[in-house]
Each structure stands twice: as structure tokens, then as C-alpha cells.
């Protein structure tokens, strides 16, 4: 029998993630795909806690903690250091949405423009979860966070990071969801063998921040795809857009929204507007697809 998910585990026991954390699961799949010859550059984010306090570490590969806005630039430096020693190592910047969409976007853009030979992974839980659920530019329209209270929820859409990264014409970028591990693993394996800047965006349900039941994490990660809120795609050289998971009968967004307390305050009109935006975004995306 051919296994679609590599059997060998790299990540060990004892990580400190919350129950139902999408980011812990994503790391596990990422390391299964990339193997032990991998180094992580981790800025301030949930994963700087999840890995464990000194002297513990859950990943069994080198993990270099770095400042909030430096995941990409530190990774570029690490890669350069290995290159000068003739070592071929997968260097992975592993950051949350705050460290990617907001404070780290300059360093990320710089690395992507230089096409530095790194894999940049953003596990996107759509707010500053590690500091207690403050809005980021990845927070979707209408969502509650501690800085977008119910009386004034987020009034701007989620930043189009995929569009931004595609505009850099990097060799490979993809979206992934822990509800589709085979798809995610295929993408990591593909990314591993490509030279240059590779970018993976993983939708990462966060029970404490999304106010969702930990047992619904996989369901939410699946519904994000099935509602076309988070289509699974890959883009080569910023130009060849491909859907990797076709959704024949998209589910209404309300099914996704109703499982999350952060959207509980939304009216029917609000939800209708979100549905309209998702449909429009899908139209825009479908025009790009091969």
C-alpha cells in the first residue's frame, strides 16, 4: 500500500499548543514532508511558545528564534551561511499572520524580490493570537477580535497576501489546509525541490481566537475550502495559477461562520455581504486559473 502521508514523524511530543491548534498540526505535516535536514527561523508568534520553553524543544530539528519582523531576513542569512559551507539544508521561515502580513512583510518582500532560497510558511490564524486575539491585516471583514470589539468589528477585508506574493513572481506559492493533509504534503514536497523563494499560506483554525470548539478545527479547515473562502491553489512564477482541490458544490459561508464565536454578532445582511464578497473573489480567482 502506498502511503499518501509519510509515516516517519520528525516532530516529537510535548509541544505547548492549545487543543485543536491548526498550527501544531501543520508543523507536523510540514516536517513529515521536509524531513530532518531542515532548519526553522521562527519569529514572535504562537510557535515561539508552542515549541516549548528553554531547554525544551518539540521539533527535533534546529529552531532559531528571531525578532518579530525578521523571519524572512534571518532565514536568508541562515541559508547564506549554509551555502558558504556547501551544505544543502531546507531553511524554513515559519511565521504567523502578524509576522507575515504586517510587521514582517518588508523582510518577506525583500527576500522574495531577491528570490532567496528559502521556504516561507505563514500559518494564518487571522489575528495576533499569541498576544490575545488582536486584529491583524489578515483578520477577515466582520470578525470580532479584542481590538475590533463587537460594536465595531473589523471593517476592512483580509489583505490579499497571495496576490502580493504572486506579484513578486516567486517560483512557487501555494495555499494549504490541515483538513487536506495529502494536498499540503504534496505542496511541501514540491516546494522542497524548487530553488528560490517558496511561499505557503496555511489556514490555521485557532479555537481560543476564533471562539470555536477544538473538535471543530478540521471541520473548519475543511469548510474554509468548501465555502471557497480559502481555495486551495498553487501558483508558479506568479503566473500559472492552478486549483488543487476542486469544489463542485460550494457550501454557503454561513456554515463556516456559525461555528465560530468571532462571527456570532453578524446579521443576516452581514453574512449575505460576506457571501457576495466570497463569490466575487472566486470570480476573480477563476479568471486567473489555468
Amino acid at each position: 500500500m502506498k502511503l499518501t502521508i509519510p509515516e516517519k514523524e520528525v516532530m516529537g511530543h510535548g509541544h505547548l499548543a492549545c487543543q485543536g491548534c491548526g498550527a501544531a498540526l501543520s508543523m507536523r505535516y510540514a516536517l513529515k514532508s521536509l524531513g530532518k535536514n531542515t532548519v526553522l527561523s521562527v519569529p514572535a508568534c504562537c510557535w515561539s511558545v508552542i515549541d516549548g520553553p528553554f531547554p525544551h524543544s518539540a521539533v527535533n530539528i534546529p529552531l532559531f528564534h528571531t525578532a518579530f519582523e525578521t523571519a524572512a531576513s534571518t532565514a536568508s542569512g541562515i541559508k547564506a551561511g549554509f551555502e558558504m559551507q556547501g551544505k544543502d539544508v531546507n531553511v524554513v521561515a515559519w511565521a504567523g499572520d502578524g509576522g507575515t502580513y504586517d510587521i514582517g512583510i518588508q523582510a518577506l518582500s525583500g527576500a522574495a524580490e531577491r528570490n532567496d532560497d528559502i521556504i516561507y510558511v505563514c500559518y494564518d490564524n487571522e489575528a495576533y493570537m499569541n498576544t490575545g486575539v488582536q486584529r491583524s491585516s489578515s483578520t477577515p471583514w466582520g470578525a470580532w477580535t479584542t481590538t475590533t470589539p463587537i460594536k465595531h468589528p473589523k471593517d476592512r477585508p483580509k489583505k490579499d497576501i497571495i496576490g502580493i506574493m504572486a506579484a513578486h513572481r516567486i517560483p512557487y506559492l501555494a495555499t494549504a489546509s490541515p483538513a487536506y493533509p495529502e494536498d499540503m504534503i504534496q505542496k511541501f514536497i514540491k516546494a522542497k525541490d524548487i530553488k528560490g523563494t517558496r511561499f505557503l499560506l496555511i489556514i490555521s483554525p485557532c479555537p481560543p481566537g476564533w471562539k470555536s470548539d477544538p473538535s471543530n478545527t478540521i471541520k473548519l479547515a475543511r469548510l474554509a475550502v468548501q465555502t471557497r473562502i480559502f481555495p486551495l491553489i498553487e501558483v508558479k512564477n506568479g503566473q500559472e495559477w492552478k486549483l488543487t482541490k476542486k469544489v463542485h458544490k460550494p457550501k454557503p459561508v454561513v456554515e463556516y461562520l456559525r461555528l465560530q464565536g468571532r462571527f456570532r454578532h453578524l446579521t443576516e445582511d452581514d453574512i449575505a455581504l460576506i457571501q457576495k464578497n466570497v463569490d466575487e473573489n472566486w470570480e476573480i480567482l477563476s479568471r486567473k486559473l489555468l
Binding site: T70, G77, G110
Partner: peptide, 22 residues
Amino acid sequence: FIKVESEHSAMAASVGASATGV
């Protein structure tokens, strides 16, 4: 030579490279 996009990144990349032992 990594031609970074800011001094902040210059130092971050330097720290990363130095940490690999070069």
C-alpha cells in the same frame, strides 16, 4: 553578499548567517 532591503534585515541576516558558524 545579501543585498537586503533595510538595515533591520541586514542585521537579522547577519545574525542568522553568523549563527550557522560563518
